[in-house]
Design a protein around this nucleic acid. Structure first.
Lengths: 125, 125
DNA sequence: ATAAAAACCGACAGGCAATCGGTTTTTATA
DNA sequence: TATAAAAACCGATTGCCTGTCGGTTTTTAT
């Protein structure tokens, strides 16, 4: 699943605003990008069809919400883009890390270690 | 950078074979997919233009080699697909890790920690 | 009932991968 | 060195996806 520029902007907006209708999204994104309201509606609809947004009717407008948070989307995108290259039982992030570790500075290594520890704690309950 | 199905197959073939010309690639991939030699040539050329392959002339054929290994490509793809969602100054792989850490099993967490330690040792000299 | 608001539908442009026919260039060799 | 074969190169087409929006239908508030 490929995400276009506008789709990404809309997702980010909805992560920050929680809920919005097309008009609201348009009023904000229309300031940086010259989009018609229809363009925003199409984009919202495409994201909805991709399963990334949910929507409910409120009055005569759809209210859109994100259906996945940023972390879940990142995980999904990563899986999509790498799945053809990873073996069963292997995780793409770990494979990638082995090639990218040299580019991380000490602080980033620390950070990563912290994240691992944090995850371990979570599992111990 | 978006990779198509055939492009992925070609990359995987070249990771396993190290070096090949269009004819060789075609003779192998042509068994599963019905491609003309020209199709393979186009694909090799596109991968070359994307910087994923290098090539040298040998006789009247280009010999292609991968320019990035699998791990480096994974890192690149992950960075590409996540970068629009990652804050300035944050390393996308680390951001990605915090998104996906819940999907890693204990052994994978161990493995990652080992890789970090290994990198640390390397730096200490 | 009606006007306004929004959804819905359909179309088109632009970009990219896959595809391949036809032409030009290169090279080995007769 | 002329030539045939091999491969590169060029250009065109198809199909898919995102962005774009005009026009029509549906919904709703008054």
């Amino acid at each position: 699943m490929q995400l276009g520029e506008l789709e990404k902007l809309v997702l980010q907006y909805l992560w920050s605003e929680k809920v919005a209708d097309a008009k609201q999204v348009h009023s904000v994104l229309g300031q940086t990008r010259a989009n018609s309201l229809n363009t925003i509606q199409s984009t919202l609809d495409r994201l909805f069809k991709k399963g990334l947004l949910s929507r409910t009717k409120q009055g005569h407008a759809h209210l859109y919400r994100t259906k996945v948070n940023r972390e879940a989307l990142l995980a999904k995108l990563i899986t999509n883009v790498t799945s053809d290259f990873v073996e069963q039982g292997e995780h793409s992030l770990i494979a990638a890390f082995s090639s990218a570790s040299a580019n991380l500075d000490d602080a980033q290594l620390d950070k990563l270690e912290q994240l691992i520890e944090q995850q371990r704690k979570l599992r111990r309950g």
